[in-house]
Design a protein around this nucleic acid. Structure first.
Lengths: 190, 190, 190, 190
DNA sequence: TATGAATGAGGGTTCATTCAT
DNA sequence: GATGAATGAACCCTCATTCAT
C-alpha cells in the first residue's frame, strides 16, 4: 500500500473529526495538517483546495451511508422489518464512522456544498423516499409527503445523535429501541 | 420613531438571516452591513463586537420563543391540547420570525455563546422538559428521556421547515396538521 | 466673553494634557471631546483636523515659552545672570503650563509638524543660540557649536523634567539649583 | 546563512528605524513590511504581535547597549577614565546601531513595555547609577541624584545626535571630545 | 452654533494557498 | 512526493471626519 493513500486517509480522518467538532469555517488547514501529521502543503497534493476537501468528504461519507442502508436490505420482509433495517443502518454507520453522521448533518445545507454533493445527498434521501412511497401505497405509512416523513425521522434522529455526542444522553440499547419505536409511530399509518 | 432603533433592528434582521443561512463563522461583518444597508462601523455602535451581537440575538430570540410558548398556555386542558398549543407555538414563531428557530437550533452549542445565552436556552428547554416529564408521570407520554423527545420533535420540525423554505413542500394547514399528528404519535404513550 | 472662546480653550487644555500623557497617535478625537466636555464634531469647528490642532497648539506653546524667556531678559547683567534668567524661565514656564514643556519636547521632531511649527521652534532655539554666540565672543562660554550647547542644556533639562513628571524625582529648590549649576558648568568656558 | 534569519533581521532593522522616526503608534505593520521588503504576514512568523515586536527589540538593544558599556570597563582606572569609557560607549553604540539609542530613549516609559523590558532597562540604569553613586562617594561627582545626572548626560547626548543625523552638525573627533568634556564638567564635582 | 450618529478607510491580524527547497 | 516559510487578501475592529438635526 503506497504511502500516499495513507496520507490521504489521515487527512480525511483529521478533517472529519475537526469539521464535526468545530465546523468547516472554524477549522483551518494548518489544524488539519498538524492533526494528520503532514505538512500543510501536502493537503494540496490531494485536494486542490479546502472546498474540494469538504465536498469530497461529504460525498464519500454520504455514499458510505447509502451503502450501509442498502446492504442486505430485506426487500422481501414486511415494512416494519424494513424500517428496522434502515434505523439500525443509521446506528451501525454511526458506530463505524464516529463523526461522519454528525458531519453530514451539520454540513447538509452548507453554502459551500457543490452540485455533486447536493446530488449525492438527494440520492440518499431517495432511498428513504422510495421506502415511504411504497409504504403509503400499501396503506402502512401515514398519508404525508415522503419528504416530510424523512424530515421527521432524519431530523429527529440526527438531533438525538447530537445529544449523544454531547454526552447528554447515553446510547443504550434500550434508548435506541425506544427511539426506533417512537419514530415508527411517527410515520406508520395511524 | 428614532432612526437608531430602525438601524439596530435592520442589523439584527440581516444578521439573523445570514447566521441562519451561513453560520456565525462564515458570516462577515461587511456582509451584515451590506445587507442591512449600514456602514460596517455602525454595527459597532450597537454591539461592541461580533460575539456580543450573536449572544444578544440568541438571547432575544430564545426569550421571544419562550414567550410564544408560554402565552395562553392551556394549563387546565388535557395534554393533547397542551401539545397542540406548543406545536402551534413553533409554527407561529417560525412564521413571525422567519429564520429565528433555525438560528437558535444551529447555534445552540456554539463555542461563542456566553453563560447568559446558555442559561436562557436551558430555561427554554425546561419548559418543554416539564411538559414531557408531567406527561410521562400521567402515562400519557412515551417512556423516553425528555431530551430525546424534544430532539425528535424539534429536529423533525426544523428539518421540515427547511423543506418548506426551500420550496419543496407547501405549508398548508393540512400538512401542518398531519405533521402535528405524526409528532404527537412519536411522543405519546403507545 | 463668548462661549466659543471658552470651548476652544477647553479643547486645547484637554488636548495638551492628553497629548502629553499619551502622545498624539494614542489620543483620539473622542477622548479630547469627552475630556473637554464638548461634542466630537465641535472640535472641527475650531480646528479643521487633528494635525491642525497639534500644530496650532505646538506653535502656541512654543510662542508662550519664547515670551517667557524673553520677558524681563537682563540684557545688561553678566552672562551668569542671563543664564540664570533663561534657566528660571524654563522652570517658571513649566509651573505655569503644566504639560506644555513636556508636550513640546515629546513632539519636537514629530512627523506631523508642519513648516510653521518647525519655524517657530527654530526661532525659540535662536534665542538660546544668540545667548551662546554672544557668550563665546566674550570667552565666557565653551568653544562648541551653539547648537551643540543648546542640545546639551535643553536635552538634559527636558529629560530631567520627564523624571519629575514621572514622579521619580522631586522638583525641590535645591535640586533645581544644583541642576542649574551643573548645566552652567557644562557650557561655561572651562 | 538561512533566509529566515535575514528576514527576521530585516524586520527588526526596518522597525527600529520607523519606531525611532515616527514612534510605535504611528508606525504600521504594513509600513514595516514594505520597508523590510517582506509580506505583512511574514512579520507574524517572527513576532506574535506588534507589542511582542517592540518589546523584543527594546530588550535586544538595551542588552546590546549594556554589553557595550560593560565591555572592557576600566574598573581599575580613575573616574575620568571610566567616564570616558562610558561616553565612548554611547558613541560607539550609536555608530553601530544607528537609531537604537534614540529608540530606547523615546520608548522608555511607553505603555506597551512589559515587565521584562522594564527590568532590562532598570539594569541598564543601574550600571550608570552605580558609576555616579561611586563617584559621589569619592567626592568626584556632583551631589545630585544619579537619575538627574543620567538624564542630563543622556538627554544632552541624544539631542546632539539628532542634530548630527539631521546634518546640522558634523560628528568630528573634535566636537565629540568637546562634548565629552562639557558633559564631564556637568557631572564632576565642582 | 453644537452635536453625536454614521461612515469607511485603514489598522492589526489570520489563514488559504503557493513554491523553493 | 513532501514540506513549511512566505505571501497577501480579507477578516474584525477603531477612529478621524462628516452632516443632518
Amino acid at each position: 500500500m503506497p504511502t500516499s493513500t495513507t496520507k490521504r486517509e489521515d487527512i480525511i480522518q483529521s478533517a472529519l473529526t475537526l469539521f464535526a467538532e468545530r465546523g468547516f469555517d472554524a477549522t483551518t488547514i494548518p489544524m488539519i495538517a498538524t492533526d494528520a501529521k503532514v505538512g500543510a502543503g501536502t493537503i494540496y497534493r490531494y485536494f486542490s483546495n479546502k472546498e474540494v476537501l469538504v465536498n469530497t468528504m461529504f460525498q464519500h461519507y454520504v455514499s458510505l451511508f447509502k451503502e450501509t442502508l442498502e446492504k442486505d436490505y430485506p426487500a422481501e420482509s414486511d415494512i416494519r422489518e424494513q424500517f428496522h433495517h434502515l434505523f439500525q443502518g443509521m446506528i451501525r454507520f454511526t458506530n463505524e464512522h464516529d463523526h461522519a453522521l454528525y458531519f453530514i448533518k451539520t454540513h447538509t445545507s452548507a453554502y459551500f456544498l457543490d452540485a455533486n454533493s447536493r446530488d449525492q445527498f438527494s440520492h440518499l434521501l431517495m432511498i428513504l423516499e422510495n421506502f415511504f412511497d411504497e409504504g403509503k401505497k400499501e396503506k402502512q405509512i401515514r398519508e404525508l409527503p415522503s419528504k416530510a416523513l424523512i424530515a421527521i425521522i432524519f431530523g429527529g434522529f440526527l438531533q438525538l445523535y447530537q445529544l449523544i455526542r454531547a454526552g447528554e444522553l447515553e446510547a443504550s440499547e434500550e434508548l435506541l429501541a425506544g427511539v426506533e419505536n417512537s419514530c415508527w409511530d411517527a410515520v406508520r399509518h395511524p
